[in-house]
Design a binder for these strands. Structure first.
Lengths: 224, 224
DNA sequence: TGAATAGTGTCTTTCAGACAATATGCC
DNA sequence: GGCATATTGTCTGAAAGACACTATTCA
């Protein structure tokens, strides 16, 4: 900080948070987008977000957006990266702190907020053209998600509290984009010691019921 | 973005970049700090930083600070995290985007910039009390550095272009804080394929000269 | 020739990956 | 009994980790 006590002598940028909300639905990784109702990029799809209020933390702003747009609370949320190219918003200098959130699939209803026409889920492999630098932001979020999946228990964010091992495996396969060997996957997950079997089984479907597991900690933990 | 085209209707926070400059000197990991010459936290040590200008990107702002404070260019620089607690600066709402940089040990001269009394290196295991939330920022930078060291070639940032394998090992030992087996270390580094031997040897010292190596890419590369 | 650092190989253990048959519950 | 999914073990190869002696140069 090489500044004086007077903050007013410096021009100030606008600061927003953008929140990428991911879920798995219909066997695909999906992200919530809103259709912009106003310029710039009117009618273009965009990552939901909004201005940071002067009295709220960045994470609080992200959680507020998350509640407003997706109606969820208590979900995994992590800061991704801050994007601050001076040209990224044609209206002026806007720096955005991007967050990403993971929500379990439980028929979420997205809400089109004030300035949005529409809100819906898009599979990440079939994205429309995005507003601002949102394509780049999404790209970076996907990389983070893939890499964290490999060395942490982050998958808990996409699953209900109790789940079948085959569901967990599907989460991995969908995000990594490749099939995994069932025996090796189960062996690894169990020996990592992050899971525990519950006393319940899942009896949906005309077949052998599956043991239900849960993560011991619903908090991010790195492997090894 | 649920905003209108008019950015002026929202109060705007101040935005700074803070830059943690790390180097290895005297067998220790050190970070550059400045002693604040003005309130708040007058006379307290702090991570150097400054306000983001309206026409420069965040990274450009960080590089500018780096040039001003440490007089270096073309060094490893990466965005760390953005800290935005509303109370983190008593002067008002100041959001800071923290970066960290790695510089090779070549007798850098730190410059006390305008509002700083003094600038000097501190070993990270003997830190003074820091201004603002800078202790937390440093903590997070150290974690990032340790973890990136384990799965990337980030060490190149702390070494001159050509170096002895024993110097590379020292970088690892100092940052990870534990001794490593020489044979295993060399085997691993060489088989990773990121290094190449130069035709030069280092003849300083009254002992057998060492082969000099360099990183094939002076750009961050993940292992595996 | 002594001091100081460079350089090198084997064995063991651990982990990842390939691979297929049996078990259980529901209809 | 047939269908659908759950559950389980072995072998192989690669990489990590423990471990100690010889080589080279200079003073």
């Amino acid at each position: 900080m090489d500044s004086g006590a007077d903050l007013t002598q410096y021009a100030r940028p606008s600061v927003t948070v953008d929140v990428l909300v991911f879920t798995i639905m219909e066997q695909r990784l999906q992200v919530a987008l809103i259709k912009r109702g106003i310029a710039p990029f009117k009618n273009r799809w965009a990552i939901p977000g909004g201005f940071v209020q002067m009295d709220e933390s960045l994470e609080a702003a992200a959680r507020r957006e998350l509640a407003e747009e997706a109606g969820v609370q208590d979900v995994f949320l992590e800061q991704l990266y801050t994007f601050g190219d001076p040209q990224r918003d044609p209206r002026g200098r806007v720096i955005t702190v991007a967050y990403y959130a993971l929500v379990p699939d439980r028929n979420l209803t997205l809400t089109a907020s004030t300035d949005a026409r529409e809100a819906r889920w898009f599979a990440v492999d079939e994205m429309p053209s995005l507003a601002f630098d949102h394509k780049e932001i999404l790209q970076q979020a996907l990389e983070r998600l893939k890499s964290k999946l490999e060395y942490s228990n982050i998958a808990y964010g996409l699953l209900p509290p109790k789940f079948r091992l085959s569901e967990l495996q599907q989460v991995y396969e969908i995000i990594l984009g490749r099939p995994l060997d069932k025996r090796n996957f189960r062996k690894r997950m169990v020996t990592l010691g992050l899971l525990e079997a519950t006393r319940q089984v899942d009896k949906s479907g005309a077949h052998r019921p599956a043991q239900l597991y849960r993560f011991k900690k619903r908090k991010i933990v790195a492997f090894k």
